[in-house]
Amino acid sequence: MVRYVVKRILLGALTLFVISVATFLLFFAVPNNPAEVICGNGKSCSQARIQMLEERFGLNDPIPVQYANYMKGIFVGRDIGAANDPRHCAAPCLGYSFRYDDEVTDIIGQALPVTLSIVIGAITFQVVFGVSIGMISALRRGTVFDRLAVGISLIGASTQVYFLGYILLILFVYETGFLPPPGYTPITENPLAWAGGLLLPWITLGFIFSAVYARLSRAQMIETLSEDFVRTARAKGLPKRQVYTRHALRAAITPIVTIAGLDLGAYLGGTVITETVFGMKGLGLFSIRAVEDLDMPIVMATVLLAALFVVVANLVVDLLYTVIDPRVKLG
């Protein structure tokens, strides 16, 4: 078990290394001179200013050296800039944003809680709502409820965030004032305002992506209900409710946990469209702006972070498997 985890962590580190190298190279494949980008409009920039910026952001070193410095920054911190005027950037240092001239870690530190809040709520909504619908559908197969649920989940699956999101915004915020306008308040400040401001993104994302969970859990549940051990549970005289939950659902939920874990990892990289629609300053919004602005340190950081989330989510899901299914042995 320990060996397996160590092996997986090393493998994850290798993945991240490859991604970081690839992103870093991409950085320099961009035709613009980063210093010109930082400076703004290239024509109005004096040569002296460009040189100053190149020094300030450490862009004069050869690429491998820059990469090594970058990695050094992540693990032990580094000094960036001209020898006479260095800026100290403590570990984990992801460099300075070209656009904002702030430490990338600070920017990420502001954006990550927003995305985290959106994603955690949305995933919870998706799984709870989706699995409930799927389970009831499976138990009432062929009834009106089942058909309705399947139909609605199809509508959900074929809707887009930028469509449903705006409709909900108009209906519940602009027209009726039923919900507070979406926005981010730190949970530590005011939990109620936190939840209130996130409700719309949660509902929008949750509804659209719950369809996958509803369909998957319906299919899983139907399959599990025909398993021998469910018949055994009934033969014992177990009441229906317990047969369905303790025996059938317990077995049907395994693949759903997998998908939820992987979804979580993938979403944490940034829910770009949702953040744009609801104007929430999360990772997604920052990364899309960073791409537009050629703000490579932020692009690099968000890409690395997204990769890290996916790698970690994969590992966690695999470890969870051993808890859920005692037959699974890792090694």
Partner: peptide
């Protein structure tokens, strides 16, 4: 009642 295949008739989890 007992069944034909005890591996599938017992709950694996």
């Amino acid at each position: 009642m007992i069944f034909q295949d005890p591996l599938s008739a017992l709950h694996p989890y």
